[in-house]
Amino acid sequence: MINSLLVGFGAGLGAYIRNFLMQTSNKIKIDFPFMTLLINILGSFALGYLTASVRDKRMLLFLGTGICGGFTTFGTFNMELSQLWFQRRFFSCILYFSLTYIFGILGFVIGIQM
């Protein structure tokens, strides 16, 4: 029961932080889903770092599964990717997809190495 509460509270906190950053970035007009890309890369890095450094299972549930899981956003990524596709912005679509996965994996690996 406590594990579920830790994950739930962490996920809410991560989602709150993500929403705050998304709202802040709405003031800057960029015709590319840069903030979601940045959030997913940062979240991947943080999860890699936490996976390698946090030994307490409950703390990892709270920070990794909860906060990082709520902070990163696969659903928004897919929505924005689909929007680029349907707008026939194929280069941006492929670039966004590639950067997200390449830098997401790289961020996770760098996080573990640190």
Rank of each mutant, 00 (worst) to 15 (best):
Ser82Pro: 01
Glu80Thr: 07
Ile67Trp: 04
Ile105Tyr: 11
Ile67Ser: 00
Phe97Met: 13
Leu95Glu: 05
Met59Pro: 00
Ala52Cys: 08
Gln113Arg: 13
Met79Thr: 11
Leu50Asp: 01
Tyr49Trp: 15
Gln23Tyr: 09
Ala15Thr: 13
Asn26Pro: 03
Ile102Val: 14
Ile28Phe: 15
Gly111Trp: 02
Gly75Asn: 13
Tyr49Glu: 00
Leu106Ala: 15
Ala15Pro: 01
Gly66Leu: 04
Tyr16Ala: 14
Ile94Asp: 02
Ile30Asn: 08
Ile41Phe: 09
Asn78His: 13
Ile28Pro: 02
Ala11Ser: 15
Gly12Val: 09
Ile41Met: 04
Arg55Gly: 12
Leu60Asp: 01
Met59Ile: 12
Ile110Arg: 03
Gln87His: 11
Leu42Ala: 15
Ile94Gln: 03
Gly107Ser: 07
Thr24Tyr: 13
Val109Lys: 10
Phe34Leu: 15
Cys68Phe: 11
Met35Val: 13
Leu47Ser: 00
Ile17Lys: 01
Thr73Ile: 05
Leu99Ile: 10
Asn19Phe: 15
Cys68His: 08
Gly14His: 04
Phe71Asp: 00
Phe86Pro: 01
Leu47Met: 14
Leu63Gln: 00
Phe20Trp: 12
Gly10Val: 07
Tyr96Cys: 03
Gly48Asn: 01
Ser4Cys: 07
Arg18Ser: 04
Thr100Ala: 09
Asn19Ala: 11
Thr51Ser: 14
Ile67Val: 15
Arg18Val: 05
Thr72Cys: 08
Ile28Trp: 13
Ser44Asp: 01
Gly111Lys: 00
Tyr101Met: 12
Arg88Asp: 12
Met59Phe: 11
Ile112Ser: 02
Phe108Tyr: 14
Arg18Asn: 04
Phe103Glu: 00
Gly64Gln: 00
Ser53Phe: 09
Tyr16Met: 14
Tyr96Leu: 06
Met79Asp: 07
Met114Pro: 01
Leu21Asn: 05
